[in-house]
Amino acid sequence: MALINPKKREVQVKIVYYGPGRGGKTTNLEYINRKFKKRILNEMVTVKTYGDRTLFFDFLPFDIGEIKGHSIKIQLYTVPGQVKYNATRRLVLRGVDGIVFVADSMDLRREMNIRSLENLKANLESFNKNLFNIPLVMQYNKRDLADEGIPILSVETLEKDLNSSIKAPYFSASAIRGDNVAVTMKKIIALTVSSLRKKLE
């Protein structure tokens, strides 16, 4: 639910990074925060536990300039991925305009990815939204682990498990190295904002 302020000519768009615990959602935002420092006016906000796990969310506001005379403020959020935090995860999803699903490429995390996507579907439905018609980008993260000899899922397997019916745009990435982090973000912003243009005519 993007918010348009016709007086300030400003639009706020909410993009949420979703996915299983330890998949790399926070790492995506941390990289964006470093890489695009100049466009980020405020500090990144994180609500985390001792062990660095996201407890509630991370929040990063990001200006992308103007569309049709309106300044566009992108608000990036991550959810806590751990299964037990579903109540807070749902709160963060409220009013979402676009989603990046960060899947963990590690072999061992195959089930967790699938369960997290099912959880996303259920949570969206509780807000009368549908996984199949909300702007969505898939990110297959931690591809770098292959270089260390750690078994990872092939992109074909991830595609089959997660994206065979949604058919969202997808990227292989390494959030820790920054590979395809910006590309993923640009893609979700483009998808989300394209539906805005008509409204701003």
Partner: peptide, 16 residues
Amino acid sequence: HDVFSLAALAAGNYGA
């Protein structure tokens, strides 16, 4: 104040 961060946290806090 950083109103955007305040609003994000307030929404979460209120929801919780």
